[in-house]
Design a protein around this nucleic acid. Structure first.
Lengths: 137, 137
DNA sequence: ATACATGCAAATCATTTGCGCAGTC
DNA sequence: GACTGCGCAAATGATTTGCATGTAT
């Protein structure tokens, strides 16, 4: 009934596509979406499909080389800076900034008594107006 | 060039459907999705469409009677407790708890110096394992 | 009477997946 | 050669929208 060898996650071989995708995410601070990465990849490898981009971004996330971010704007963003850090999102233009401050280690403790369960982590995103949008209005 | 009367957002008349949808959201602490609300509404009004549920949830959000929440699980959640408060999401079962503590007023200030722009608000969600999931394993 | 609201179905949007072929180990 | 990864296109899932008709004011 069970397969003789359980299916491994594999993720072994590497590919030019994956290398390129990783380079592109690593080469920007814009926290791009899969769509944007796809457009960039296509500049040098025009036949790469969007599905391949999604698949590889997911593989890279499993490998811990990129992190997947959800800012609630409808599409997922990717970040090659995988050290734990917070983000600031501009409510006008949607741009994202990395925050250079260390994570607030005390937050989980500050709420643990009002949760029935164990608090393991938190997601914190700051929202406001970026300096560029302030100037343009 | 301009229409004689600018199109108002309106949102005036009320409907049995909207009343029912609001009652259902107000009557639960489960932070339901539109899908769940739809199933509930149908118990008393079987012909209500999912589109109507979405439209009315959005209207209620504009009116400030419900709030829309995104926990990154793929679907939007709705909450009739509109006072500012944080949530705790179980990473195993996806259940959501309201936190009874006041928002951390100091957070925005703690990061404002490392943001180029103005920090107006933050989104904070705590993640962990709820007591029910702890027991079941 | 005049809008706004509804039900239905089709359209969108982001993301995922099945499949036959190509590339890597 | 055995498998993993790719390109393509179709499938999925959540949400939105166009339209003809119903309903509240």
């Amino acid at each position: 009934m069970n397969p003789p060898h359980p299916k491994k996650p594999a993720v072994t071989k590497h590919s030019k596509q994956r290398d390129r995708i990783y380079d592109i995410v690593r080469g920007t601070r814009s926290h791009p979406t899969a769509e944007w990465v796809h457009e960039e990849v296509r500049r040098s490898m025009p036949r790469v499909s969007l599905g391949t981009v999604y698949r590889n971004l997911h593989v890279l996330a499993l490998q811990g080389r990129v992190m997947e971010l959800d800012f609630g704007d409808g599409s997922r963003h990717y970040d090659a800076f995988t050290d734990e850090h917070y983000h600031f999102v501009c409510e006008r233009c949607g741009s994202v900034q990395d925050l250079d401050i260390p994570p607030f280690a005390d937050l989980n403790d500050r709420v643990s008594s009002s949760v029935s369960g164990i608090v393991r982590s938190h997601r914190l995103v700051f929202v406001g107006v970026c300096s560029s949008c302030q100037q343009h209005q």
